[in-house]
Amino acid sequence: MDTREQGGASSELVTRDEDGNLPDRFENPGPPPHRYRLADTDPKAAKNAERQVAALFGISILGTIFAIVAYFLFTPENTFASIKLSNTTLGLGLGLALLGIGLGAIHWAKTLMPDHEMTEMRHPMRGTDEDRTKALEVLETGAAESGIGRRPLVRNTLLGALALVGLPGIVLLRDLGPLPKDSLTKTLWAKGVRLTRDPDGKPIKAADVTRGSIFHVIPQGLNESERPLEEKAKAAVLVIRMDPNMIQEKDPAREGWDVDGIFAYSLICTHVGCPVALYEQQTHHLLCPCHQSTYDATQYCKVIFGPAKRALPQLPIAIDDEGYLVAQSDFKEPVGPSFWERG
């Protein structure tokens, strides 16, 4: 339709009231005319839809049978392929069984059930004034009958009792776990404890640690200790060997903590405790795979990137009479993530 032709017909576009005035806002024109579906007007289409729905339900039946047959037919053996076959066929059968019902029901509703939209009135959420007055009266009567307003002693002691009654529930939780005490500051490392390979506990000779190597290390006797996982979560150490001259600024306090360029550092990230195990032997950077805190072994594992703040604690090591690496002492500071009392 051409706007030019329409130009004179603006009165058709906007409805005026009897006085010929325009309303402030447009008025809701009411529901649009209904459009009929093929199946509403054409019995053939309806019959077709009926067949399609039935076919979908039929597929569901076949799917169910297939799933049951697959359960017994494709029993997993000791191979991945058989497990995969069992999983795929079972799931396929189940999926078809479910989809058949679902798609069939929806198709039925869409094509064959009435699709005239209906209208129903809403009621405001707010109660009528009468309801509200009555409700208030009931509440007031209840309050008055209980005497909660007149007897403050009863009310206040009740409030006090209610406020306190939950406390035993909290106190009962006390035995969820022991108090930390000094457990976060102690590990299995002590003077003379040998550095051994993770996981088999074989001791490591200083000569074994060649340049460019990394050893994942646990303290000797860890696997036999009472709680190996908890101990390992604190005591795990990595050992690397580098040219001692690579150290950028020598720290006199750490003099003698390494054995001829063999350094031992805590494996546990000082951020949130992941194992910092990614060692780049060319740059001597250690990367934590969880949040990318990067430590530089040429600066005593100072943080050079990422969210961690503190350097990885260094374990002072020495060499024993048989040539094995041993700890000089425990770590000089708590290992792992920060905690309030850490200081």
Binding site: G95, I101, G102, L103, M113, E117, E120, R122
Partner: peptide
């Protein structure tokens, strides 16, 4: 007002069917 389809039968069939569709897709 509210304009739509009644719970019975249209909405029940659609919503009930949709549960099976969702379950079926997840099974696949």
């Amino acid at each position: 007002n509210v304009v739509g389809f009644p719970l019975l039968p249209v909405y029940a069939a659609k919503a009930g069917g949709f549960f099976f569709v969702v379950f079926g897709i997840m099974a696949l």
